[in-house]
Design a protein around this nucleic acid. Structure first.
Length: 623
DNA sequence: TTTTGATAACTTTTT
DNA sequence: GTTATCAAAA
């Protein structure tokens, strides 16, 4: 085994008990170190059940599970912090006053609930910016485990959490926040999980936030076997409260910790690494570290300044064609950009040349209205309390119950402290409704009742079919003939995914299916049959590598993004983002920018990114 | 009271 | 180019 590893990697893999930090530069084989470390633990007789591996994305977790399985034919738990939280809470959340079957609200759902709270507190239908700002503050409080000082905001925070509890729902941040609460306040539960996972390994440690750090700290408190891998230069998630300081403070937080640095890169040519090193050296707050490799100098970095974003995309597509003719698989080419909105011109350019591509991340399949509607039906099937799903389903299809009536219903249900569906079933006489509304409500409840009695015996795909049958949802879609066909196809696809998922599960349930979809929405979409170009945001590129990389939109106000301009720390994060993009490339790297760019319908003159100037001229070849 | 159509205000990155 | 929001119509 150790012949495949260099001395530093070997040292990390064979490390005994106690805390260890691996400072692993880009492409230094950190995934390999973690998997071999786990394999080594299993070899020394440790029960795989006692090993917990935490990764940053579900995709990475899946990859790790597969690799361990291939190496040792063993199953270890490899998940993200959020999934881990969901798993722990599923078993123990009743201690915090929730029911064990809870819904997980995505950003969209929680924003709706928050808006509901703001309405209730008399902030009127206030502007959207305020809702977003408030949600941001709440999210920050949960991720940082801090209180909200502002009087008004803390009142909103309180009501919002209360409403979540009434709905028996959690938002994303609760998966971490409530896990911390549970572990901190219930010693028996804490001890149970400490004993359960005696060896904890964490990847991308530089992107953990305070809540995640606290979970790791508590879980490893008893046995102190915490093994973390990370690179402060690749910390790009401060938007989620990530603190690269966690990695700098590791030795302080875990006394007696050992630190191993990996700086040999096994991925990229020296030209690419020199560019990356020169760029990241401009950041002030960091551990000095320079990557090197034995992969030779390689070719220069192509720099192309286009006139328009259209021309930029054409250039990329044209180059892709050239590489393709040179026998390069389309799978080995990736296009990166800063914001999702930038993908459009590239899609057009590739489409017109019939080059197949796939967008990784981006607007998710599960954010489509029709898909969300069906999922809301699934949620309301297993919950009497889920207000947001009630609101989604009540008028899909239209049942003639408008805003005014809903206001009355919700208000009365809230003041009487009765779950929304129970209220509709048993207490509707408490309020006054028109005949049409009562009829619509009766129709809704009857449908729900019939679904609930017939579905427990059915497979999930069949449940969805039954929802379509009983609600007339497809006819509802027909009202907009333009989009009906596509929407129907999406529902078909959802049913296909449900069937596929259920097939692979030991104990499938609607709740688990829903949890899976909210926590790992992209997983199943990414299985293209034929080779194709991968397009994604720089954030999504983390952890991946490609022989040929196009890093696009290298302009001021895009990369670095305009919102980071005023904050030096934010600019440094943008620089790290650029660094991450560059270090994904193995052999060939292109940097592109455009002189003019259409934003909000008008043409704007763009300045080249400052990051371009920070890369030594002699590494670049202007095209 | 609900539905519809027209007008505005937007877009950073994600579990 | 797009999705919420607000006004008038049914």
């Amino acid at each position: 085994m150790s012949t495949l590893l260099n001395p530093e990697q070997t040292e990390a893999v064979l490390h005994g008990d106690g805390p260890l930090l691996v400072l692993a530069g880009a492409g230094s084989g950190k995934t390999r170190v973690i998997t071999y470390r786990i394999a080594h633990l299993i070899e020394t007789g440790i029960d795989p059940e006692q090993i917990l591996a935490v990764t940053f994305t579900n995709k990475a977790a899946e990859e790790m599970r597969t690799r361990i399985h291939a190496l040792k034919n063993a199953r270890v738990l490899a998940t993200t912090f959020h999934s881990l939280g969901a798993r722990i809470l599923r078993g123990s959340i009743h201690q915090l006053g929730f029911q064990n079957i809870f819904a997980i609200y995505d950003e969209d759902d929680s924003e709706k609930l928050l808006k509901n709270c703001l309405d209730q507190l008399g902030f009127g239908s206030g502007d959207k910016g305020f809702v977003k700002e408030t949600r941001r503050a709440i999210s920050e409080a949960k991720n940082n485990l801090t209180a909200i000082n502002d009087n008004v905001l803390s009142q909103v925070y309180h009501i919002y959490n209360q409403k979540l509890k009434e709905c028996n729902a959690l938002d994303f941040d609760d998966l971490l926040f409530l896990t911390v609460q549970l572990l901190q306040n219930f010693p028996e539960t804490r001890t149970f999980y400490q004993n359960r996972w005696r060896y904890i390994l964490i990847d991308e440690y530089q992107d953990t936030n305070i809540a995640q750090y606290t979970i790791a700290k508590i879980l490893s408190e008893k046995y102190q076997n915490i093994f973390v891998v990370g690179d402060p230069d690749q910390s790009i998630y401060s938007l989620r409260g990530a603190r690269y300081q966690n990695i700098l403070n590791f030795e302080r937080d875990f006394p007696g910790a050992r630190v191993i640095t990996l700086d040999q890169n096994y991925r990229s040519t020296n030209t690419i690494l020199e560019a990356a090193n020169a760029l990241i050296a401009k950041n002030t707050n960091r551990f000095e570290k320079a990557l090197w490799s034995e992969l030779g100098e390689g070719s220069k970095i192509g720099l192309y300044i286009a006139y328009s974003e259209r021309q930029e995309a054409d250039f990329v597509a044209q180059r892709i064609n050239q590489h393709h003719h040179y026998d390069t698989s389309l799978d080995s080419i990736a296009v990166f950009y800063r914001t999702n909105a930038q993908s459009r011109p590239f899609e057009d350019a590739l489409l017109s040349r019939r080059i197949p591509y796939i967008i990784i991340g981006g607007v998710s399949f599960y954010e489509r209205r029709e898909v969300k509607d069906i999922l809301a039906y699934l949620r309301i099937l297993i919950s009497n309390t889920d207000l947001i799903s009630f609101l989604r389903t009540i008028n899909a299809p239209k049942r003639g119950i408008g805003l005014a009536s809903l206001d009355k219903i919700i208000h009365s249900a809230t003041t009487h402290q009765i779950p929304i569906i129970t209220f509709c079933e048993e207490h509707l006489d408490k309020i006054k409704l028109g005949g049409k509304q009562i009829e619509g409500m009766r129709n809704y409840l009857q449908t729900l009742h019939r679904l609930r009695t017939t579905t427990p015996r059915l497979k999930i795909a069949e449940v969805i079919q039954e929802i379509l049958n009983l609600t007339g949802y497809l006819a509802f879609l027909e009202q907009d003939p333009e989009t009906a066909q596509e929407r129907k196809e999406n529902i078909d696809e959802l049913m296909g995914k449900a069937a596929e998922w259920e097939e692979a599960q030991e104990n499938p349930s609607i709740q688990l299916f829903l949890e899976e979809l909210t926590l790992r929405p992209t997983a199943s979409v990414e299985n293209p049959d034929a080779p194709c170009i991968k397009m994604m945001t720089l954030h999504n590129s983390k952890g991946l590598e490609f022989p040929i990389v196009f890093l696009t939109g290298l302009e001021e106000d895009i990369l670095p993004h305009i919102n980071s301009k005023l904050d030096p720390a934010a600019i440094e994060e943008e620089r790290r983002l650029c660094y991450v993009g560059i270090t994904r490339a193995k052999k060939t790297l292109y940097l592109t920018a455009s002189t003019y760019r259409y934003t909000w319908g008008t043409e704007r003159l763009m300045a080249p990114s400052r990051f371009l100037r920070e890369i030594p001229e002699e590494l670049l070849l202007r095209l």
